Amino acid sequence: MLLVLAILLVVCVPAAVALVCCGDDRLDRIAGAWSRRRARRRDRRTIAQLDRAIDADDLTRDIDLTEFDRPDRRSLEQVAADLWRLRAYRLGRGGRPIVWPLLLIQTYDDRLRLACRCLGVTEHLAELEGVDREIERVRVEGALHAAGLPLPAATADHRQRHR
């Protein structure tokens, strides 16, 4: 019996010493995991309260989320680059406006419509013609600029007003 007790003492003493020396590290890991779990639960409760407060379902009811999941969908950055490039074609090399070919106008309007869909801005470009369409184009460019997408025409007008 004394021999078994001596063997247990030789095996258990190093394990007990290791537990005492490394125990604080284990306690820190457990306490950190517990605090992260509490923080996640608190964040989820806060988000749920905000959703109920602003009634998020009503805000997103009219948005077709499948539009964002399409693999062929162009990113907003690509649309903005297209709009900048098409606007530069319109101004020409000398900075003077030139007559837009019909295809260029249609492409520019398509990109404006796409940007409006991405940012939730209402537009009526397809329904209008002539001068009314030009006015709507300027309005849409300003609305997109206000929504956070600076376009060359809206940016230039914005700079002129603030000089």
Rank of each mutant, 00 (worst) to 15 (best):
L125H: 14
V131G: 02
L3H: 06
D109V: 12
A15K: 06
I54P: 01
V4H: 03
E134W: 11
R137H: 13
V17M: 12
D157K: 06
V79T: 13
R40Y: 10
I7F: 11
E134K: 11
A88N: 06
Q78R: 03
G32R: 15
L8G: 09
R26E: 09
R41D: 10
R87E: 15
D132Y: 04
A6K: 14
L2F: 07
H145W: 00
D62W: 00
P152L: 12
P71T: 01
T122A: 15
W100Y: 09
R41S: 06
A31V: 11
D72F: 02
A143G: 05
C12S: 06
A33S: 15
G94K: 11
T60L: 15
T155K: 07
G23W: 00
G32P: 02
I54W: 01
A39D: 11
I30Q: 13
E136S: 13
W84M: 07
E123W: 05
R133D: 04
D132S: 12
R44S: 09
D57I: 02
L151F: 03
R26N: 09
R42M: 07
D57Y: 03
P152F: 00
D58L: 11
Q49S: 12
A147M: 04
L104A: 13
L83E: 01
R93V: 12
A143K: 12
P101D: 08
D43T: 12
A15G: 10
Y89D: 15
L149I: 04
R90A: 10
V10I: 15
R45E: 12
D132I: 05
G120K: 11
E129T: 15
D64T: 05
L27D: 14
S75Y: 00
L103M: 14
L3T: 14
V99G: 05
V131R: 14
A80E: 10
R139T: 13
P97N: 09
I30Y: 08
V79R: 01
M1I: 03
R36H: 08
D110H: 09
L151H: 00
V131I: 10
A88M: 05
P97T: 07
L27M: 13
R70K: 10
R29F: 13
R70P: 00
D72M: 03
